[in-house]
């Protein structure tokens, strides 16, 4: 794929990625966020963070399955949108939900594994976002790759966090868990199938 095409695809990603936020603002302005608007925003931003995480994680499986490589360049922008929605998610929790009641909030984080798991995922994502620029990629060299493999752990924590939120109906968390298992499974499969790996490398 040509360079100008990538630019076009990236622009499309920007447009698409800002839609959920625009929707929230639109619904908020029109007082249309339902009876529990804070919960709505928490769920929405959390869901979109998870969606972008899973989209980011599908770029490598696409390469493994099709031999296409151009989409690998999209990982950074997709990953950063994951971080963007995760930030909104945390801000909603700290500001709108707990209105900076730090004592209450700290108890909530420390005592409840669900919050702790989500918070850990967020903390782990900070260094990844901070080292996503080209300068850091060059500087960290092989360590960069190692560092950014944390994303697998973040994804697992994020799905667990969602899973633990649900009172009884696990349908939705199961969708995400299955997606993640498939995405990670493809990687594992190719890792232990060297002949397949070489075939794809040739195709590249």
């Amino acid at each position: 794929m040509k360079k100008q095409h990538i630019v076009f695809v990236k622009a499309a990603i920007w447009l698409f990625a800002l839609l959920p936020l625009s929707r929230l603002i639109w619904l908020g302005v029109n007082d249309n966020l339902g009876a529990n608007p804070i919960e709505f925003i928490e769920h929405s931003t959390g869901t979109w963070a998870l969606v972008f995480l899973l989209i980011t994680l599908s770029m490598t499986p696409i390469r493994l399955l099709t031999g296409q490589v151009w989409q690998i360049q999209l990982r950074r922008v997709l990953g950063l949108f994951m971080f963007f929605y995760a930030c909104l998610h945390i801000i909603t929790y700290v500001w709108l939900d707990f209105v900076f009641m730090w004592d209450e909030l700290l108890i909530d984080v420390a005592k409840h594994p669900r919050i702790l798991v989500g918070f850990a995922a967020f903390l782990l994502a900070i260094p990844l976002a901070a080292t996503s620029n080209s300068y850091m990629i060059k500087r960290l060299k092989t360590n960069w790759k190692k560092l950014h493999q944390t994303v697998y752990l973040i994804a697992i924590l994020a799905v667990v966090h969602f899973w633990m939120l649900v009172k009884k109906d696990l349908t939705e968390p199961i969708y995400y868990a299955v997606m993640l298992i498939v995405l990670l499974g493809i990687r594992v499969y190719f890792k232990y199938q060297p002949h397949l790996k070489s075939k794809v490398t040739k195709a590249m």
Partner: peptide, 22 residues
């Protein structure tokens, strides 16, 4: 007495709006 997964010491009043707090 907290619910094992979330706090019970405060609550969100429905209808308090975005900045209604707890």
């Amino acid at each position: 007495v907290d619910h094992p997964r979330w706090t019970q010491s405060s609550e969100k009043p429905i209808g308090a709006g975005l900045f209604g707090g707890r």
